[in-house]
Simulated scan of single mutants.
Amino acid sequence: MTTKSFIKTLSANDVGTTGGHMGGILVPKGNGELLTFLPRLDASMLNPSAWIDCKTPENTVLRLRYVYYNNRLHVPKGTRNEYRITHLTNFLRSENAKEGDAFEISKDDGSHTYRIRVLAKSGSLEDDSDAPVRIKLTSGWRRVH
């Protein structure tokens, strides 16, 4: 069984310390591997979304919304054209997530349930030579092999 994992370094906006409205974690549009890891969303629709079940380290299943905000493609003067994972605020707070920590999402091939966790900021995310190979993506995301 193959497991795919992606890690995103959390920004101040992701963890709500900027004081702005948290719209969820940004998912980069330019990375096909990450986009195919998540459910397919139909760009011909306005703001398509899918609910994904995610198991926490405590084995609680959370329902997160994966959404493609795309009013720029459908509405005159629309400005948004971005993918996000939303409904994470309570989870990130319960995990005491801070800027610089990492959010990890993973899934076994054939499974419909994702796993999520927060990894505390440490040098081992980038510097541990025994750690799995990571490929840096855009917007703070990395693929874990």
Rank of each mutant, 00 (worst) to 15 (best):
Arg65Ser: 10
Phe6Lys: 01
Thr18Phe: 10
Pro39Gln: 01
Arg134Cys: 09
Gly16Asn: 08
Lys107Thr: 00
Gly24Ala: 12
Val133Ile: 11
Ser122Gln: 10
Asp108Gln: 15
Gly100Asn: 01
Glu126Lys: 10
Arg117Gln: 12
Glu99Ile: 01
Ser111Asn: 14
Asn31Lys: 11
Asp14Val: 09
Tyr69His: 06
Pro57Gln: 12
Gly20Arg: 05
Leu62Ser: 03
Ser106Trp: 02
Glu58His: 14
Ala120Lys: 15
Gly30Ala: 14
Lys98Phe: 02
Gly20Ala: 14
Arg63Gln: 15
Lys55Gly: 04
Phe103Arg: 00
Asp128Asn: 15
Asn90Lys: 14
Lys121His: 09
Trp51Ile: 15
Arg84Thr: 04
Leu34Asn: 00
Leu119Trp: 06
Asp53Gly: 15
Gly110Ile: 06
Ala97Ser: 11
Trp51Cys: 11
Ser106Leu: 03
Gly16Met: 03
Thr18Gln: 11
Thr86Phe: 03
Leu119Met: 11
Asn96Met: 07
Leu46Asp: 09
Pro76Thr: 03
Ile116Thr: 05
Arg115Tyr: 14
Asn70Lys: 06
Leu119Asp: 07
Arg93Trp: 07
Lys4Ile: 08
Asn71Phe: 04
Thr9Trp: 00
Phe103Cys: 05
Tyr83Cys: 08
Leu137Gln: 05
Thr113Gly: 08
Glu33Ile: 09
His74Cys: 01
Ile25Cys: 12
Pro48Ser: 04
Glu82Met: 09
Leu10Glu: 00
Lys29Trp: 07
Glu126Gly: 09
Gly30Trp: 10
Ile105Tyr: 00
Asp128Arg: 10
Ser49Phe: 02
Gly20Tyr: 10
Pro76Ala: 08
Ser129Gly: 04
Lys8Ala: 03
Thr138Asn: 13
Phe6Tyr: 13
Asn31Val: 08
Pro48Gly: 02
Leu64Tyr: 00
Arg65Pro: 05
Asn47Trp: 04
Val118Cys: 01
Phe91Gln: 04
Asn70Met: 07
Glu33Met: 09
Leu38Tyr: 01
Asp108Val: 14
Asn59Trp: 11
Gly123Phe: 06
Leu34Val: 08
Gly110Phe: 08
Lys29Tyr: 12
Leu92Lys: 00
Met45Arg: 15
Ser106His: 05
Ala120Thr: 08
Asp127Gln: 10
Gly19Phe: 08
Thr113Asn: 07
Lys136Met: 04
Lys8Gln: 07
Ala102Leu: 07
Ser129Phe: 13
Ser139Leu: 12
Val15Cys: 04
Pro57Cys: 11
Thr9Asn: 08
Val118Asn: 00
Ser49Ile: 01
Lys121Ser: 13
Arg65Ile: 08
Asp130Pro: 00
Phe37Met: 10
Ser139Gly: 06
Leu92Ser: 03
Val27Ala: 02
Thr36Pro: 07
Pro28Glu: 00
Glu126Phe: 09
Asp130Ala: 11
Met45Asp: 13
Asp127Val: 02
Lys121Thr: 06
Ala50Ile: 03
Arg40Gly: 09
Lys121Ile: 02
Asp42Val: 07
Asp101Asn: 04
Leu88Lys: 05
Arg65Ala: 07
Arg72Ser: 11
Ser129His: 13
Arg40Glu: 14
Ser139Asn: 14
Glu82Asp: 12
Ser129Leu: 11
Gly32Glu: 06
Leu92Asp: 05
Lys98Tyr: 01
Leu34Cys: 03
Lys121Pro: 02
